[in-house]
Amino acid sequence: MIVFDNVTKRYPGSQEALSNASFSIEQGEMVYVTGHSGAGKSTLLKLIAAIERPTNGTVLINNQNVSKLRESALPYIRRKFGLVFQDHKLLYERNCYHNVALPLAINGITGADAGKRIRAALDKVGLLNKEKSMPITLSGGEQQRLAIARAVVSRPSILIADEPTGNLDKNYADDILTLFSAFQQVGVTVIIATHDALGTANEHKVLHLDHGRLMSPQVAG
């Protein structure tokens, strides 16, 4: 469970990227974070994933206060999340298999056990036949799916995706969103930031940001 209480984030030398945001996300929910570009979506996701710490306010992740944690404890919080970055952040000098292996290596899982899980994750996103390919040879949609495979391989309870459908055409985007729904259906909390209303027109919770301010949480549909 994720709870934000009056959270403000200010970067040095700039305006508040996020002002007084309060909301909570339950386990197993699917949440869309919407708003124009620069509205603070990425900041919100980084605060949830314990990549950034709030300037003011409290961020609770599974009842742990992120702002009170020691710097050295943050990596262990981050491992609870599967992250799909806006720019993929794939490692282009490693093949697909080894890209997906990275989170497991960080968790100390190697060998046959890791191999099984990596192939399962690649299978889930439909890239099992590409495990030896280099990421640069994949299409945009495939790269996005590879990033998702990397995010889910360590079986996180919370999946966070920043603009996962950003540069994809409609068919690919629908594929990706179907994939996220599938994870939500098996109990994973899914948080997706998107600048357009694509796929938000259903029963999911929406956190709409405008210039760093959270408009009242609403349930669409």
Binding site: I77, F81, L83, K89, I106
Partner: peptide, 16 residues
């Protein structure tokens, strides 16, 4: 550098 950055983002400790 990229690998280090990604690793840190997804929970690698300093010692890792």
């Amino acid at each position: 550098q990229e690998e280090i950055e990604v690793s840190q983002l997804i929970g690698a400790t300093h010692s890792f």
